[in-house]
Simulated assay, not measured.
Amino acid sequence: MFMFKITKQLNGSFCLNNQDYLTMIYVHDGEIDVFHHHLHKVTKVPSGYYTIIPFNELSYVSTNTSQCTMVTINAMIVSTLARDVIQQWLSHDYSLLSYHHHKQMIQNHINQLIDYTSLTDLHLNTEVTFRISYLLMVLINDLNTQTPLSLNMNHPLKQKYLLSNQMRIFDATIDLITNPHKSIAAIATDYGFYDQSHFTKAFKKYRQITPYAFRQSYLKDMYYK
Protein backbone atom coordinates (compact mmCIF):
# COMPACT_ATOMS: atom_id res chain seq x y z
CA MET A 1 0.00 0.00 0.00
CA PHE A 2 1.32 3.45 -0.94
CA MET A 3 0.87 6.03 1.80
CA PHE A 4 2.01 9.58 2.41
CA LYS A 5 0.94 12.42 4.65
CA ILE A 6 1.69 16.14 4.77
CA THR A 7 1.35 18.08 8.02
CA LYS A 8 1.66 21.86 7.73
CA GLN A 9 1.20 22.94 11.35
CA LEU A 10 3.54 21.43 13.92
CA ASN A 11 3.15 22.68 17.47
CA GLY A 12 5.09 21.96 20.64
CA SER A 13 7.29 18.91 21.12
CA PHE A 14 6.78 15.33 20.04
CA CYS A 15 8.59 12.05 19.47
CA LEU A 16 8.73 10.14 16.20
CA ASN A 17 9.36 6.40 16.09
CA ASN A 18 9.74 5.74 12.39
CA GLN A 19 9.67 2.09 11.38
CA ASP A 20 8.50 1.89 7.79
CA TYR A 21 8.33 5.61 7.08
CA LEU A 22 10.64 8.38 5.88
CA THR A 23 9.84 11.82 7.27
CA MET A 24 11.18 15.09 5.85
CA ILE A 25 10.69 18.24 7.95
CA TYR A 26 11.12 21.54 6.06
CA VAL A 27 11.54 24.70 8.18
CA HIS A 28 10.05 27.85 6.61
CA ASP A 29 10.40 30.31 9.48
CA GLY A 30 12.15 30.22 12.86
CA GLU A 31 14.01 27.05 13.83
CA ILE A 32 13.37 23.65 15.37
CA ASP A 33 15.42 21.39 17.64
CA VAL A 34 15.75 17.76 16.57
CA PHE A 35 17.38 14.93 18.48
CA HIS A 36 18.31 11.93 16.30
CA HIS A 37 18.74 8.91 18.54
CA HIS A 38 21.05 6.95 16.22
CA LEU A 39 23.17 9.94 15.27
CA HIS A 40 23.64 10.77 18.98
CA LYS A 41 23.13 14.49 18.40
CA VAL A 42 20.75 17.40 18.84
CA THR A 43 20.56 19.75 15.87
CA LYS A 44 19.08 23.20 15.43
CA VAL A 45 17.37 23.32 12.03
CA PRO A 46 16.81 26.95 10.92
CA SER A 47 14.65 28.44 8.18
CA GLY A 48 15.69 27.28 4.71
CA TYR A 49 16.91 23.92 6.01
CA TYR A 50 15.34 20.54 6.55
CA THR A 51 16.04 17.28 8.32
CA ILE A 52 14.92 13.72 7.80
CA ILE A 53 13.79 10.95 10.11
CA PRO A 54 14.58 7.74 8.16
CA PHE A 55 13.33 4.20 8.64
CA ASN A 56 14.00 2.76 12.10
CA GLU A 57 15.09 6.10 13.54
CA LEU A 58 13.88 7.48 16.86
CA SER A 59 13.71 11.25 17.20
CA TYR A 60 12.49 14.07 19.40
CA VAL A 61 11.32 17.29 17.74
CA SER A 62 10.70 20.65 19.42
CA THR A 63 9.14 23.13 16.99
CA ASN A 64 9.10 26.15 19.35
CA THR A 65 7.30 28.93 17.42
CA SER A 66 8.56 27.93 13.99
CA GLN A 67 6.64 27.31 10.80
CA CYS A 68 7.45 24.04 9.10
CA THR A 69 5.99 21.29 6.95
CA MET A 70 6.38 17.56 7.60
CA VAL A 71 6.20 15.16 4.66
CA THR A 72 5.88 11.49 5.62
CA ILE A 73 6.27 8.75 2.99
CA ASN A 74 6.03 5.01 3.54
CA ALA A 75 8.74 2.50 2.63
CA MET A 76 6.91 1.19 -0.43
CA ILE A 77 6.96 4.60 -2.10
CA VAL A 78 10.64 5.12 -1.27
CA SER A 79 11.61 1.66 -2.56
CA THR A 80 9.59 2.17 -5.73
CA LEU A 81 10.76 5.68 -6.62
CA ALA A 82 14.22 6.11 -5.11
CA ARG A 83 15.74 3.00 -3.57
CA ASP A 84 19.22 4.58 -3.75
CA VAL A 85 18.31 7.14 -1.10
CA ILE A 86 18.38 4.44 1.58
CA GLN A 87 22.11 3.81 1.10
CA GLN A 88 22.75 7.56 1.17
CA TRP A 89 21.22 8.09 4.60
CA LEU A 90 22.99 4.99 5.91
CA SER A 91 26.33 6.52 5.01
CA HIS A 92 25.84 10.30 5.45
CA ASP A 93 24.81 12.73 8.17
CA TYR A 94 21.13 13.52 7.55
CA SER A 95 20.52 15.85 10.51
CA LEU A 96 20.82 19.21 8.67
CA LEU A 97 20.19 19.70 4.95
CA SER A 98 19.70 22.93 3.00
CA TYR A 99 16.91 23.50 0.50
CA HIS A 100 17.69 27.16 -0.30
CA HIS A 101 18.42 26.43 -3.95
CA HIS A 102 15.19 24.46 -4.40
CA LYS A 103 12.94 26.42 -2.03
CA GLN A 104 10.28 27.58 -4.49
CA MET A 105 10.13 24.29 -6.38
CA ILE A 106 9.87 22.24 -3.19
CA GLN A 107 7.10 24.48 -1.86
CA ASN A 108 5.20 24.17 -5.14
CA HIS A 109 5.44 20.37 -5.11
CA ILE A 110 4.32 20.17 -1.49
CA ASN A 111 1.35 22.45 -2.13
CA GLN A 112 0.25 20.30 -5.05
CA LEU A 113 0.68 17.08 -3.05
CA ILE A 114 -1.60 18.33 -0.28
CA ASP A 115 -4.59 17.62 -2.54
CA TYR A 116 -3.54 13.97 -2.73
CA THR A 117 -2.62 13.46 0.93
CA SER A 118 -4.15 10.26 2.27
CA LEU A 119 -3.52 7.46 4.74
CA THR A 120 -5.64 5.02 2.72
CA ASP A 121 -4.89 3.01 -0.40
CA LEU A 122 -3.27 5.31 -2.93
CA HIS A 123 -2.44 4.73 -6.58
CA LEU A 124 0.70 6.54 -7.65
CA ASN A 125 -0.58 8.52 -10.60
CA THR A 126 1.77 10.49 -12.82
CA GLU A 127 1.42 13.75 -10.90
CA VAL A 128 2.01 12.26 -7.46
CA THR A 129 4.94 10.19 -8.75
CA PHE A 130 6.57 13.23 -10.33
CA ARG A 131 6.26 15.42 -7.24
CA ILE A 132 7.42 12.85 -4.69
CA SER A 133 10.27 11.77 -6.99
CA TYR A 134 11.45 15.38 -7.12
CA LEU A 135 11.60 15.62 -3.32
CA LEU A 136 13.51 12.33 -3.11
CA MET A 137 15.97 13.24 -5.85
CA VAL A 138 16.75 16.54 -4.11
CA LEU A 139 17.27 14.56 -0.91
CA ILE A 140 19.73 12.18 -2.59
CA ASN A 141 21.74 15.09 -3.99
CA ASP A 142 21.78 16.89 -0.65
CA LEU A 143 22.89 13.77 1.24
CA ASN A 144 25.78 13.33 -1.19
CA THR A 145 27.17 16.69 -0.01
CA GLN A 146 27.06 15.74 3.66
CA THR A 147 29.76 14.37 5.95
CA PRO A 148 30.14 10.57 5.67
CA LEU A 149 29.25 8.72 8.85
CA SER A 150 31.83 6.71 10.75
CA LEU A 151 31.83 3.05 9.80
CA ASN A 152 31.24 2.11 13.43
CA MET A 153 28.20 4.38 13.78
CA ASN A 154 25.54 2.54 15.75
CA HIS A 155 22.88 2.85 13.06
CA PRO A 156 20.00 0.41 13.63
CA LEU A 157 20.49 -1.16 10.22
CA LYS A 158 24.22 -1.65 10.83
CA GLN A 159 24.20 -2.92 14.39
CA LYS A 160 21.35 -4.62 16.26
CA TYR A 161 20.24 -3.56 19.71
CA LEU A 162 17.37 -4.79 21.81
CA LEU A 163 14.40 -2.54 21.07
CA SER A 164 13.52 -2.22 24.75
CA ASN A 165 17.02 -0.98 25.60
CA GLN A 166 17.02 1.41 22.64
CA MET A 167 13.74 2.91 23.79
CA ARG A 168 14.94 3.30 27.38
CA ILE A 169 18.11 5.09 26.31
CA PHE A 170 16.15 7.25 23.87
CA ASP A 171 13.57 8.25 26.50
CA ALA A 172 16.26 8.86 29.10
CA THR A 173 18.18 11.08 26.67
CA ILE A 174 15.10 13.22 26.06
CA ASP A 175 14.76 13.59 29.83
CA LEU A 176 18.43 14.60 30.08
CA ILE A 177 18.07 17.46 27.60
CA THR A 178 14.58 18.66 28.49
CA ASN A 179 14.99 18.55 32.29
CA PRO A 180 18.50 19.92 32.92
CA HIS A 181 17.96 20.20 36.69
CA LYS A 182 16.82 16.60 37.14
CA SER A 183 19.54 14.40 38.61
CA ILE A 184 21.05 11.67 36.49
CA ALA A 185 20.39 9.21 39.30
CA ALA A 186 16.67 10.04 39.20
CA ILE A 187 16.60 9.62 35.42
CA ALA A 188 18.34 6.25 35.72
CA THR A 189 15.71 5.05 38.18
CA ASP A 190 12.79 6.42 36.15
CA TYR A 191 13.81 4.43 33.08
CA GLY A 192 14.41 1.09 34.72
CA PHE A 193 18.18 1.08 35.25
CA TYR A 194 19.49 -0.40 38.49
CA ASP A 195 21.30 2.79 39.46
CA GLN A 196 23.24 5.71 37.99
CA SER A 197 26.30 3.54 37.37
CA HIS A 198 24.28 1.01 35.37
CA PHE A 199 22.67 3.79 33.34
CA THR A 200 26.00 5.49 32.68
CA LYS A 201 27.57 2.24 31.49
CA ALA A 202 24.69 1.45 29.11
CA PHE A 203 24.52 5.04 27.85
CA LYS A 204 28.26 5.26 27.21
CA LYS A 205 28.31 1.88 25.46
CA TYR A 206 25.72 3.13 23.01
CA ARG A 207 26.70 6.79 22.59
CA GLN A 208 30.44 6.67 23.44
CA ILE A 209 29.86 9.50 25.94
CA THR A 210 28.56 9.64 29.50
CA PRO A 211 25.09 11.05 30.28
CA TYR A 212 26.68 13.95 32.18
CA ALA A 213 29.02 14.87 29.30
CA PHE A 214 26.18 14.54 26.77
CA ARG A 215 23.96 16.90 28.81
CA GLN A 216 26.79 19.43 29.29
CA SER A 217 27.57 19.39 25.57
CA TYR A 218 23.91 19.99 24.74
CA LEU A 219 23.56 22.85 27.24
CA LYS A 220 26.78 24.45 25.96
CA ASP A 221 25.55 24.28 22.36
CA MET A 222 22.19 25.79 23.32
CA TYR A 223 23.90 28.62 25.24
CA TYR A 224 26.17 29.69 22.38
CA LYS A 225 23.59 29.33 19.57
Rank of each mutant, 00 (worst) to 15 (best):
V71T: 12
S79W: 02
N74D: 15
T80I: 00
I73Y: 07
L58H: 12
A82D: 14
I86W: 03
D84K: 12
V71P: 06
A82W: 04
L90R: 06
E57L: 00
N74M: 04
I86A: 01
N74C: 09
V85S: 04
L90I: 03
N64K: 13
I52N: 12
V61F: 08
A82E: 12
I86F: 01
N64P: 00
I86L: 01
I73K: 02
I86S: 00
A82S: 15
N56C: 08
V61I: 15
S59R: 01
S91G: 08
T72L: 04
T69G: 09
N64V: 01
N56W: 14
Y60D: 09
S62Q: 12
D84W: 00
N74L: 05
M76D: 15
N64S: 11
Q87N: 13
V61K: 00
S79T: 08
S91F: 07
A75H: 13
I73Q: 08
R83C: 04
I73D: 11
S79K: 12
C68H: 02
Q67L: 13
A75V: 10
L58A: 02
T72P: 00
I52R: 02
S66D: 08
Y60I: 01
L81H: 09
T72M: 12
L58K: 11
S91A: 08
L58F: 15
A75T: 05
T63S: 14
Y60E: 07
T69N: 07
V78C: 10
L58W: 12
Y60L: 08
L81A: 06
M76F: 11
V85A: 04
V61Q: 07
Q88E: 15
Q87C: 03
Q87R: 10
Q67K: 14
T65H: 14
L81R: 05
I86P: 02
V61H: 08
T65K: 10
L58V: 03
T80M: 09
D84Y: 09
V85W: 02
Q88I: 00
L58S: 11
Y60H: 15
V78W: 11
W89T: 00
V71H: 07
N64W: 05
N56H: 13
T72H: 02
M70A: 15
M76A: 10
M76C: 03
T72W: 00
I52L: 06
F55T: 04
N74F: 03
M70K: 11
V71Y: 11
L90Y: 14
